[in-house]
Design a protein around this nucleic acid. Structure first.
Lengths: 195, 195
DNA sequence: ACCGTTATGCAACAATTTGTACCATAGATT
DNA sequence: AATCTATGGTACAAATTGTTGCATAACGGT
C-alpha cells in the first residue's frame, strides 16, 4: 500500500501556500518570498526552503493554487443564450470576486518568460475553452446553431473580451455588459448567412 | 529663451532606457535594476540613481518607452473591411515583431498594483480604441454601417481577441486568423437585424 | 579661450536580502 | 519504546540595494 504522507508536510504546504496567495493578491508577485511567507505564517525560513528550493517553485506553486481555487460547473441544457450567460457569469464572478482576478495578470506576465507559468495558464484556459465548446456543440445538436458554423473563433470571442476588459483595459465586468456580450455572440452563432 | 538641455542628460537617459528595454524583453521586469543597466551600458550606478531614484521609476520609464516605441498611422478611407484589416495588421505586427509584444504582459501585471503602469496601459489603449472608433464612424458616415449600431462593443472585440491570443492564451496571430476575425466583426457591424 | 556650473565616475560603506549548513527538538510511524 | 523524519533556530557567506563624498570631465555663457 502507498504509505500516507506525513501530516506535517501537508500542513506546512497548505499554510505556506495560503499565505503566498494572500501576498500575491495584496502586494504582487515580488512580495512572495521565503522570508515574507515565513514572517506571515511563523513557519521557519529553512523549512520553506526545503519545500520550495527556489523562488521560482514557490511562486509557481502559488500561481497553481490561485488557478485551481475557483472551479465551477458548466451547463449545456438550456438554449445557447442561457448556457453562455451561465458560463460567463461564472467567469465574471471568478474575475471579480476570487483571487484569480488579482493573480491572473501576474501569471500572464510570468508566462512571458517562464514555461511553468505558461503551463498553468494553458491548462486553465483549455478547461475554459472546453466548457464553452460544449455549450456550442450542444446547441448544434439541438439544431439551434447550424452545423457548418465555425465555433473556434466564437469560443475565443466569448472568453477574450472579459479577460481583456478585466486584465488589460481595466474596465468593469457588470451585468449590463454581460447581456450585451452574449447578445453579440448569439447573433454570430445563429446567423444563417455564414460562408 | 528656454535653455537647451544638457546633452549628457539626454545621452544617459537614452542609453539607459535602451538597455532597460532590452533587459525587459529578454529577461523580464525583474532583470531591470540599476545594477544590471549599469553593467549593460557602462553608465555608473550612482548616475542611474540620480536619474531614477527608485526602481519603480526606472521600470516605469522602460514601460513607457516600450509603449511609445511603436506607433503606426490609422486609415479610414476604404471600405470597413479594408480599414480594419489595416489597423489589425498594424497591431499584429506590433505584437509579433516589436518589443511591445514581450513587454506588454509585464506592464499588464504591474498595472495590477502600480497606478503609473496602469496609466501607461490606459493611454496606450485609448489611442488604439480611438483609431478603431474612427474607422467605424467613417463607415457609418459612408452608410456602410447603420447609424444605430453600437460600436463600443465592436471596438472592444476587434482589439480584445488579438491581445487575448498573444498575451493570455499564447496563440499565434497569423494572416488566416486576421482575415477570419475581420470577417466576423464586419458581419456584426453590417448586420441590419440589430435591436 | 576661459570659468563657473553641472553631470558623471569611482570608491567606500551600511543595511538588507538570499541561500546554505548544522544541530537540537518535536512530532510521526512501526 | 525506538527509529525516522520534519521542523525551528542559529550562524554564516554572498550578493543586492541604496547612500555619500569627492575627483574629474563635459557643458554653456561670456
Amino acid at each position: 500500500m502507498s504509505k500516507q504522507e506525513d501530516p506535517r508536510l501537508i500542513a506546512t504546504r497548505t499554510h505556506a501556500l495560503d499565505a503566498s496567495l494572500e501576498l500575491l493578491q495584496e502586494e504582487g508577485v515580488l512580495a512572495v518570498t521565503h522570508a515574507s511567507v515565513s514572517a506571515l505564517t511563523g513557519i521557519s525560513r529553512s523549512t520553506l526552503y526545503r519545500h520550495w528550493p527556489t523562488l521560482h517553485e514557490l511562486r509557481n506553486s502559488a500561481f497553481l493554487r490561485a488557478a485551481t481555487s475557483q472551479v465551477f460547473p458548466p451547463r449545456t441544457n438550456g438554449p445557447l443564450r442561457t448556457d453562455l450567460t451561465w458560463l460567463l457569469g461564472g467567469l465574471v464572478t471568478a474575475l471579480n470576486e476570487t483571487p484569480w482576478g488579482q493573480v491572473a495578470p501576474q501569471v500572464v506576465a510570468a508566462a512571458a518568460t517562464d514555461r511553468q507559468a505558461r503551463a498553468v495558464i494553458n491548462t486553465f484556459m483549455q478547461d475554459r475553452f472546453q466548457y464553452v465548446r460544449e455549450a456550442f456543440e450542444a446547441a448544434k445538436s439541438r439544431g439551434e446553431v447550424a452545423d457548418d458554423v465555425e465555433v473556434n473563433p466564437l469560443i475565443e470571442m466569448v472568453i477574450a473580451v472579459p479577460y481583456f476588459r478585466k486584465l488589460i483595459a481595466g474596465l468593469p465586468l457588470d451585468h449590463t455588459w454581460l447581456e450585451n456580450h452574449v447578445d453579440l455572440i448569439c447573433r454570430l452563432a445563429t446567423d444563417q448567412t455564414t460562408a
